[in-house]
Design a binder for these strands. Structure first.
Lengths: 343, 343
DNA sequence: CTGAAAGCGCTTACAG
DNA sequence: CTGAAAGCGCTTACAG
């Protein structure tokens, strides 16, 4: 076998308890001794045995992870949640407990409130889809000071002291959608419209940027004739898109950069444009699936939702159990394209 | 905590050793007693603790996994191999050893020989990309009788007694490629050519089927004007495709259903058809990446190579350590589409 | 066929 | 600040 704590203890001439305390940066060790032990461990290439750690952990206070998602009403997060649960299940062996909370959409106040609830309950780590606000960043920093480790998933937030971000590069995902429109371009001058929830949503703004950059550089004969903000609301989406399509009957395509496609798709179908207007969406919800099958949506750009949830929890769990940080602070998901044939 | 072996021992009125022997179907337990122990364990919902199993396993003979890949010269397998190594690394905690062997392409004789080598060395489990031959199926069955558990990845083989198959649904991946050609169809009657390694390679034949089915059903104005067999050889590919393109200058697209695109792509570039002829490929090798970036390949259909390797080993490892079978015998990979923008 | 015991590597309450 | 010891859950060589 390999280097164990026992071996290190022998070499350092101290007890295994002291080695454990030193390596895990626990308090109450002579700094001199600690330094030496750590150095010896590094020299010998010590790798802690996770199985043994897990087993020993069972005797003492369990770790607790909080999960806070802005997913109310957004089916995209069902798959994220699957990943979260699978990772939590695997952590159960190590006696890691968990508690999951949701807010309806990106509601700032509600998020702040739920964060305080978690602080009261007492958690060791948090996986969160943060609302993009300084208030949240501040609160996360305060929680860090209290010893709570934070991992952001799906959306990131600056200067919050988080351990890692697991999610999408949204500019890149914008490019992917533009590439699809380009692929379907006939070679003639054509117009498309873009639909976002709000340009204030960071992810949507970044996707727009990716789309514009790509069209400008690679597909000069595609012009964006209009940007519609639907607030991710289906009724708004329906009205605005219906209008837009009627005013500009020769459109080649439309790209939904955020949620709320259902209404827009309804408008498209009513106007008899299904299968004609090239529709590109994001993610893979039931609505998207249905409309891919019916040839209304041509393709959709995906971002590994399951993995976002799984890795978010996994990275946090590994850190809590072993203080091991992920190799990269930002773990970007694979961006890929799905069609009716890949379902 | 939960139900442990100790608890079961108490309830059954036997020692922990006996419980262990009964639950793991080891020999030398009174059948009556074994039956009762197993029943009690089920009743109590006993779930063995992996960490403890791993720790205990360290004291005794390690398990050994053999890996046998038909990957010589095929860059697609680099990523499969990454997944394999990551999974093996995780198994090291449980003292699982491994040995990896390769054959050059799908060489039947070489595969049979390497299988015998593994038997000699003594392995407990095998992850293999089987050559599609009855001789292989027979040998795998023989190995099963000797107590070796087999998992197939990337390609399956019937009636071989394997524990599971992890890989692609090739008919479906054929459909995905056809869908891409369809997406790029101008609406007019158009012709495409298909390139395979050999129609004798099961995966290629299945992809062809998927492509034909889809074109027939959904894209009636795309006609396959020719099928080229390139033996996955670049020179052959170059020659045949150059000829084909010269004979039929109005082609809309070409789909490479197997390896050996490099030569074909060279022909396309020489004839000045880069960016004009719609090229669809499979998988994501360095050659594919380069040609996506240069706008020669429009899109490529992928099949989670990393995951194939990872899960193949993971499923086998879990089975060897805990006799737990995967939920599904056939674990199908996600099929997805990549473009230059998703790189 | 069965039980008692040792030990896998790590952690912490306890005593000093 | 440090060491000796117990124990997390499981497995097997050993003795009977």
């Amino acid at each position: 076998m390999k280097i164990t704590i026992k071996k290190i203890a022998e070499v350092a001439g101290v007890s295994r308890g002291t080695v454990d305390r030193a390596l895990n940066r626990r308090k109450g060790v002579n700094p001199e001794v600690a330094r030496r032990v750590i150095e010896i461990a590094e020299q010998l290439g010590y790798q802690p045995d996770l199985a043994a750690k897990g087993l020993a952990a069972k005797r003492y206070t369990p770790k607790k992870i909080g999960i806070l998602l802005c997913s109310g009403g957004n089916p995209f997060f069902d798959e994220v949640l699957e990943g979260i649960h699978d990772a939590l299940d695997e952590l159960k062996v190590f006696e890691v407990k968990s508690s999951v909370k949701f807010t309806k959409g990106f509601d700032l106040k509600d998020q702040l409130k739920k964060l305080d609830e978690f602080r009261q309950e007492g958690i060791d780590g948090l996986v969160i889809t943060p609302v993009y606000s300084e208030l949240v960043a501040e609160k996360l920093k305060a929680m860090k000071r209290e010893g709570i480790t934070v991992v952001t998933i799906n959306t990131d937030i600056d200067d919050s002291g988080r351990l890692a971000y697991v999610g999408c590069d949204y500019v890149k995902s914008g490019k992917a959608a533009a590439g699809l429109l380009g692929m379907m371009n006939s070679g003639k001058e054509e117009r498309v419209i873009l639909v976002v929830g709000s340009q204030m949503v960071l992810a949507h703004a970044q996707r727009l940027k990716g789309i514009f950059d790509t069209l400008r550089e690679d597909y000069k004969n595609i012009r964006v004739s209009r940007i519609i903000e639907n607030n991710e609301d289906d009724e708004t989406s329906y009205q605005l898109i219906k209008e837009a399509l009627q005013e500009d009957p020769g459109l080649m395509g439309i790209c939904f950069a955020g949620a709320g496609h259902e209404g827009g798709l309804r408008a498209i179908k009513e106007l008899g444009l299904a299968g004609v207007l090239r529709v590109v969406t994001y993610d893979m919800t039931d609505v998207v699936k249905k409309n891919l099958k019916e040839n209304v949506i041509f393709a959709t750009v995906c971002q590994e939702p399951y993995k976002q949830g799984y890795l978010g929890v996994d990275i946090l769990g590994k850190y809590l159990l072993t203080r091991k940080r992920p190799a990269e602070t930002c773990v970007y998901m694979h961006i890929y394209i799905a069609t009716k044939y890949t379902l």
